Lab assay of single mutants.
Amino acid sequence: TYTYKLTDEEASRRAEDEWRNRGYDVRVRNNNGTWEVEVR
C-alpha cells in the first residue's frame, strides 16, 4: 500500500486516475487539507 500526501486536489485526482488505469485499487481522502491518495 502506497500513500501519497498532496496539497493539491487536482494532483490527487490525476494520481487517482493514473493508478486506477493501471488496475490498482485507489482511495482518496482529505485529511485536514492534505489529500491522501492510497494505492493498493
Rank of each mutant, 00 (worst) to 15 (best):
5 K>P: 06
26 V>Y: 00
23 G>D: 02
32 N>R: 06
10 E>Y: 09
28 V>E: 02
24 Y>W: 06
16 E>P: 03
31 N>V: 14
3 T>W: 10
4 Y>D: 03
26 V>E: 01
33 G>Q: 04
14 R>A: 10
7 T>D: 14
11 A>R: 06
3 T>M: 09
30 N>A: 08
13 R>N: 07
23 G>L: 00
34 T>A: 09
1 T>V: 14
11 A>F: 05
33 G>F: 02
7 T>W: 12
27 R>D: 11
37 V>L: 12
27 R>N: 12
11 A>W: 06
32 N>W: 03
24 Y>S: 02
24 Y>M: 04
11 A>V: 05
32 N>G: 11
20 R>T: 08
23 G>E: 02
6 L>S: 09
28 V>D: 03
31 N>R: 09
37 V>S: 00
25 D>K: 07
16 E>N: 04
4 Y>V: 08
36 E>P: 00
39 V>D: 01
6 L>G: 07
12 S>T: 12
15 A>S: 05
9 E>G: 05
39 V>M: 02
23 G>R: 00
22 R>C: 00
17 D>G: 10
1 T>I: 13
11 A>S: 12
1 T>N: 10
7 T>Q: 14
39 V>C: 09
6 L>D: 05
31 N>M: 08
16 E>S: 11
34 T>M: 13
16 E>Q: 11
12 S>M: 15
39 V>W: 02
17 D>L: 15
5 K>D: 07
37 V>N: 00
14 R>H: 10
14 R>Y: 08
24 Y>R: 02
39 V>P: 00
38 E>S: 09
10 E>V: 09
2 Y>R: 12
19 W>A: 04
15 A>I: 15
14 R>T: 08
6 L>E: 06
36 E>K: 01
22 R>N: 06
17 D>N: 13
25 D>M: 09
37 V>W: 01
22 R>M: 12
33 G>C: 02
19 W>P: 00
26 V>S: 00
13 R>G: 04
2 Y>D: 05
40 R>N: 08
11 A>Q: 10
29 R>S: 14
18 E>D: 10
10 E>N: 09
32 N>S: 07
9 E>F: 10
19 W>H: 03
34 T>N: 08
15 A>Q: 06
26 V>G: 00
12 S>W: 07
8 D>N: 11
9 E>D: 04
10 E>D: 11
28 V>I: 12
3 T>G: 03
28 V>F: 03
31 N>I: 13
2 Y>H: 11
17 D>H: 13
22 R>F: 05
29 R>Y: 14
8 D>M: 03
5 K>W: 14
30 N>Y: 15
38 E>F: 07
5 K>N: 10
8 D>T: 13
32 N>Q: 08
22 R>I: 05
37 V>E: 00
2 Y>Q: 09
18 E>H: 14
6 L>W: 09
2 Y>I: 13
24 Y>D: 02
12 S>L: 11
23 G>A: 00
17 D>W: 14
2 Y>F: 13
14 R>P: 02
10 E>G: 08
11 A>K: 06
4 Y>E: 05
33 G>N: 05
25 D>W: 11
40 R>A: 08
16 E>K: 06
40 R>E: 07
23 G>T: 00
12 S>V: 15
12 S>A: 15
2 Y>P: 04
14 R>G: 05
20 R>V: 06
11 A>N: 06
16 E>I: 13
1 T>Q: 09
30 N>D: 09
2 Y>N: 06
20 R>G: 04
31 N>W: 07
36 E>Y: 14
18 E>Q: 10
15 A>G: 03
11 A>T: 09
19 W>M: 05
11 A>H: 07
22 R>H: 07
35 W>F: 07
22 R>W: 06
38 E>H: 08
1 T>P: 10
22 R>T: 03
35 W>V: 01
21 N>H: 10
34 T>P: 01
30 N>I: 10
5 K>M: 13
24 Y>L: 04
33 G>V: 01
27 R>G: 07
34 T>Y: 13
23 G>Q: 01
18 E>R: 10
15 A>R: 04
19 W>F: 08
5 K>H: 13
10 E>T: 09
6 L>Q: 07
26 V>D: 02
37 V>D: 00
11 A>G: 06
17 D>Q: 15
